[in-house]
Design a protein around this nucleic acid. Structure first.
Lengths: 204, 204
DNA sequence: GTCTATACGTAGATAGAC
DNA sequence: GTCTATCTACGTATAGAC
């Protein structure tokens, strides 16, 4: 007996996920009961567990269902002409979700849960490694092509860039009235400084 | 009927807190049962609730009992002679607890919980504001006295320094095998760059 | 596919003996 | 002050009717 409509099935699954997302972001995985998810999604307990085998599965799906084609965006950034501009744009792209409190909160909770869930940790680290590689590649190209002069080597610099982006998520998730747009502007200035002089460098 | 020994009372209270700390750090507040705390501390449920009115009270006590005299240390740093060195030393001092996975995990969980607990949020923000003021003061003095040239104004720079310290805690809490010592070395280099040239500046 | 009703375990917290 | 025993509520997840 075939499904009536696979598209509708996925839509409803997604509907439940979207209802659960702000709850997980605000109260964490353990702090969110299936009853609240059920209520927020407007479905019964039976329906919830028809679409997901467990509460954790809803959470994991939110983190691993990649609807934005992240990998493609990273690959495109990697190969752009001007590495310095490409790097700064990529950073902004990676940091942008911090503007959404829900996204920021979810990421924070994901990192927390990854400590106790090897499978989740592996998935997150895989994503992170791809990001890191793209960042390091662009830092490296910047050094060669546009005279950047970072204090650290390319990979370490990339790790720090990732770290700082993570810090933005942290602040977005915890600070009420966090002004993401202003922070992104500052971030660009700071990175410019961290990467060092461009060539030809300006004399003061 | 007076207490047998107030000092012993506080010691036992502290013993329970110390037993709970790594559990909260690893599994979060909601993810840690009173049964596990009880077990780790080697006391019964009755005893646990004799010393603390609730599980949350144990957690809050871990964050708000200031045993290190943080305020004094900040005030001392504020008024040191060489502001640039004082600033870098202060940053190291503030970032140092990130070397302890338990401390880092607790801080992360505290920030997460602060979103749903106004009282806790207020306490944490008060601490953070005192830190920020000391940092901004030192940045400001560095600009005037030692020719620092940050990209942003003193307060914004201080906020970013806090952000970067937060990033260290984040990584310490989420990354297994995090090398805190190495990161502190990098941090000093990065901040030096971020603060800009010292005077007399060196020509390359 | 979606519901109602509920099983079954474990949670936080308390009572009262010692 | 500390224990054992226990209360009540709520947690996730399932069963089975529709």
């Amino acid at each position: 007996m075939r499904k009536i409509d696979p598209a509708q099935y996925r839509a409803k699954r997604r509907h439940i996920m979207m209802a659960a997302a702000p709850l997980f972001a605000a109260h964490g995985l353990d702090g969110t009961s299936t009853a609240r998810i059920r209520e927020a999604a407007g479905v019964s307990s039976g329906t919830l567990f028809h679409y997901f085998p467990s509460k954790r599965a809803v959470f994991v799906a939110l983190l691993t269902d990649d609807d934005n084609g992240d990998a493609q965006r990273l690959a495109a950034a990697r190969d752009r002409d001007d590495p310095r501009t490409a790097l700064l744009d990529l950073v902004e792209d990676l940091a942008a979700p911090a503007a959404s409190p829900v996204a920021a909160g979810l990421v924070m909770e994901a990192l927390r849960q990854a400590g106790n869930d090897a499978e989740l940790a592996a998935a997150l680290e895989a994503d992170s490694d791809v990001e890191l590689e793209a960042l390091a590649h662009l830092v490296s190209r910047s050094v060669r092509e546009s005279g950047a002069d970072p204090v650290l080597d390319a990979r370490a610099t990339a790790v720090w860039i990732q770290t700082i982006i993570g810090a933005l998520f942290l602040r977005a998730a915890t600070e009420t009235g966090f002004d993401a747009a202003a922070q992104l502007r500052d971030l660009r200035l700071l990175l410019d400084r961290l990467l060092g002089e461009t060539s030809p460098r300006t004399e003061r």
